[in-house]
Amino acid sequence: MTTKNTINYIEFHARDLEATKQFFGSVFGWTFEDFGPDYSSFSNQGVDGGFFRSEHASCSDTGAALIVLYTDEIENLERQIVSAGGTITKPIFSFPGGRRFHFTEPSGNELAVWTEPAED
């Protein structure tokens, strides 16, 4: 059931739609449903969304919203992202709520990953 007045769907640009789908599938286990050659959707990832073919990319430095994902294995996920063709743009750093890093996926969209603070 759709909840009124909540974030319901997020759409991303994708320069290389197939590479983007492969990246998110291999690193995060996402599955996709294609709607023609220029659009692919995902669901059950916290919020549903999709990727559409475009030469643009989303980056927080240019004013775009930053999508932040959660993990409980931040170092492992950082390595997986690099192995799958992502680029780390801000290595793991601490912030008041925990630790996080930023990356770009093969189409150039910037996302971040966070986890709780490291235990002493």
Rank of each mutant, 00 (worst) to 15 (best):
D72V: 01
D120G: 13
L69G: 08
I81S: 00
G50H: 02
F95M: 11
D120H: 12
G50Y: 06
Y70T: 10
K4P: 07
T87D: 04
A14E: 04
T89P: 00
T6W: 06
V47N: 09
F42Y: 15
D16M: 04
V47I: 15
S26H: 08
K90I: 02
I7P: 13
D34E: 14
G86M: 00
Y9P: 04
S60I: 09
G46C: 02
L66H: 05
C59Q: 14
F95D: 09
L111F: 12
L77Y: 08
C59M: 11
P96V: 12
F28T: 04
N8V: 07
R99P: 05
K21M: 15
S83R: 12
E11F: 06
A19M: 09
D38A: 13
T31P: 02
L111D: 09
V27N: 05
S26G: 04
T6A: 14
K90M: 14
S60E: 10
G85S: 10
F32R: 03
S54Q: 11
N5C: 07
S107F: 01
F24Q: 02
F28M: 02
E33K: 13
V27E: 07
I67Q: 10
A19H: 10
D72Y: 02
F24M: 01
G86P: 01
F28W: 09
T115H: 09
S58C: 04
E73D: 14
T20F: 02
L66C: 06
F95P: 06
F28H: 06
D16N: 15
F101T: 00
F32C: 02
L111Y: 05
G63F: 10
R15Y: 02
Y39N: 09
T62V: 12
V47K: 08
L77R: 06
E55G: 12
D34L: 04
G85K: 08
T20P: 00
A84M: 05
E73Q: 07
G25I: 01
Q45G: 04
T2N: 10
N109W: 03
W114C: 10
R79W: 00
D48I: 03
L77S: 09
L17K: 05
A112N: 08
K4W: 05
A57R: 14
G63W: 10
S41F: 14
F12G: 08
G98A: 10
G49I: 06
P117W: 07
Q45D: 03
M1V: 11
D34V: 05
S107A: 12
S41L: 15
P37V: 11
T89D: 07
G108V: 07
T104L: 02
M1E: 11
D61L: 14
G36T: 12
E119R: 13
F101R: 00
S26E: 15
W30I: 00
E33N: 11
E33G: 11
A84S: 14
F24T: 01
H56W: 11
A57K: 14
E78T: 01
G49K: 08
L111G: 06
R53P: 01
F32Y: 13
T31A: 11
C59W: 06
Y70F: 09
T87Q: 15
E119V: 12
N8I: 07
Q22D: 15
E119M: 12
T20Q: 06
R100K: 15
A64Y: 12
G85L: 08
F103H: 01
